[in-house]
Nucleic acid binder design. Sequence first.
DNA 1: TCTATTTAGTTAGCCTTACTAAGTAGTTTA
DNA 2: TAAACTACTTAGTAAGGCTAACTAAATAGA
Lengths: 147, 147
Amino acid sequence: MAHTARGNFGTADRLHSAAIHLLRRLRREDAATGLAPARLSALSVLVFGGPMNLTSLAAAEQVQAPTMTKVVQALEAEALVRREAVAGDKRGTRLVATSRGRRIMEEGRRRRVKRLAAELEALPAAERAVLEKAAAILERISAGRPR
Amino acid sequence: MAHTARGNFGTADRLHSAAIHLLRRLRREDAATGLAPARLSALSVLVFGGPMNLTSLAAAEQVQAPTMTKVVQALEAEALVRREAVAGDKRGTRLVATSRGRRIMEEGRRRRVKRLAAELEALPAAERAVLEKAAAILERISAGRPR
DNA sequence: TCTATTTAGTTAGCCTTACTAAGTAGTTTA
DNA sequence: TAAACTACTTAGTAAGGCTAACTAAATAGA
């Protein structure tokens, strides 16, 4: 029991470090998008999560609404996002990635993924299989604890 | 061959998403440290990577030296980091986490890890074992491609 | 119905964190 | 010993975070 708990802490700790180091490395590919980090991240939520209002986008990004107002204004100015009226509620806006926004986002993601894929290429098949399974498990956990 | 490459892209993509979602969730624990993100991150490098000079710390954090100057000044003002002279080179400083800095950092990491460990608790042992192996593989890749 | 509350978003003002350019001071090299 | 390089700081700007306070619209309640 104590043993199990200790084991989980060790695994959690290593997983935590591994995720930090992995993303820190891949993040360097983002400079090529020409977009600042917060804008890139917000855009990715719109591209991969679909259109949503400003409040939801702020929640997804774990920032306050005024912060997201500015980020969205910048994305609009670059024609990466547009606003649409919400039928039946004149307060809200529906934020939609433009085709230009989707293209830039997808190219950015491709760069990150390409780099990681190249790293995986060097691994034995059995290890790649372990990583594949791990990704599936982690996504299942995340899906169960949204936000 | 085409198949292998495609498989790696898929795995890379899922791993990438999994890491993003995992860290996004855990990051929320950091508010409890009372430290701004850049400061917390720089401090963690000093605590877990040991004393180093400002240039190395900036490189580890992927920022320019002037950025790190300000972060370190803030950490010094809060008595989380202190500077020591470098023997034989009067230009450099050796940055060392204070005991207060170490304590705050370790508590913060404990909070993150505790949360993740609790999530792992719900998994079957076989899945925890997969995650453990995955963490080890990823850390090995990172170690081979430092920074 | 009409008033009160809640919800969606913006504006204003502040701090933090990033950058580049340019400077100081110390060290190394030709 | 002059030139080049290294370590770091200062100055100025932009981006991205916050809270407080606001407008406007929708909803709930008396």
